[in-house]
Design a protein around this nucleic acid. Structure first.
Lengths: 109, 109
DNA sequence: GCACTTAGGTTTGCAGTGCAAACCAGTTTG
DNA sequence: CAAACTGGTTTGCACTGCAAACCTAAGTGC
């Protein structure tokens, strides 16, 4: 019964996979800077398909990382996206982990 | 018939998901520095379970990113791991993409 | 008024993946 | 000889990312 798994105290060992996903990194990094935008703007910025973007957003919303506000602009629906405080925190932590990890990766091939 | 998907020329848009996986980032970054090691050493370093490590290594081998050399140390089998040139290249590219992307992420919350 | 298109997304189907548990061949120990 | 350990590999499964298909409401041609 040797316990097989070791400590796991590595910078990347217990990374938040919800944040680590590339598409979501793009979404979060946008919101991290611009505070709020609508669905279509985000689609342009990230290059994702609507379906794809929609499901990533839902996932981020379920995690409490982004707030999805639906309102009407005139008579047309519009979806506003905003980073929640805990989303901001999670993203910031993730980037910090990456930076820390990368600090140990030498530059020269 | 609006084409839905946009260019996708973002730094993270077409990231190599084989490399991006956290467990594999750990493996590759180890090999990037130490040139070669055996299975158990890698397990200690990464904190992965054997099964998990084994399957990640197989995947990296299939991709041509690591070389898995089986030999005997006395009477006991030993598995040596080494980064291939293309693995080194792929990892290096990936880190470069991350660095580039992170350069646009502001430090302050 | 009525068909058709467009905007703005959501839901569905499916292939691919990461994970640990179960397994296995060979070796050492009691 | 049996039990336990080494050094891994294979299996089973739940989850996930993706694009295609779908949906509802607003505009447009006639």
């Amino acid at each position: 019964m040797t316990s097989d798994r070791e400590s796991g105290a590595h910078p990347l060992g217990d990374v938040d996979r919800l944040v680590h996903e590339p598409a979501r990194l793009l979404i979060l990094s946008q919101l991290y800077v611009i505070k709020a935008c609508d669905f279509l703007f985000m689609q342009k910025q990230t290059g994702l398909t609507k379906g794809n973007l929609s499901s990533h957003l839902t996932k981020l919303e379920d995690a409490g990382y982004v707030e999805i506000i639906k309102e009407f602009a005139g008579k047309r629906p519009r979806t506003l996206l905003r980073l929640t405080p805990s989303g901001r925190q999670a993203f910031s932590n993730h980037v910090a982990s990456l930076r820390e990890w990368m600090a140990n990766v030498p530059n020269q091939p």
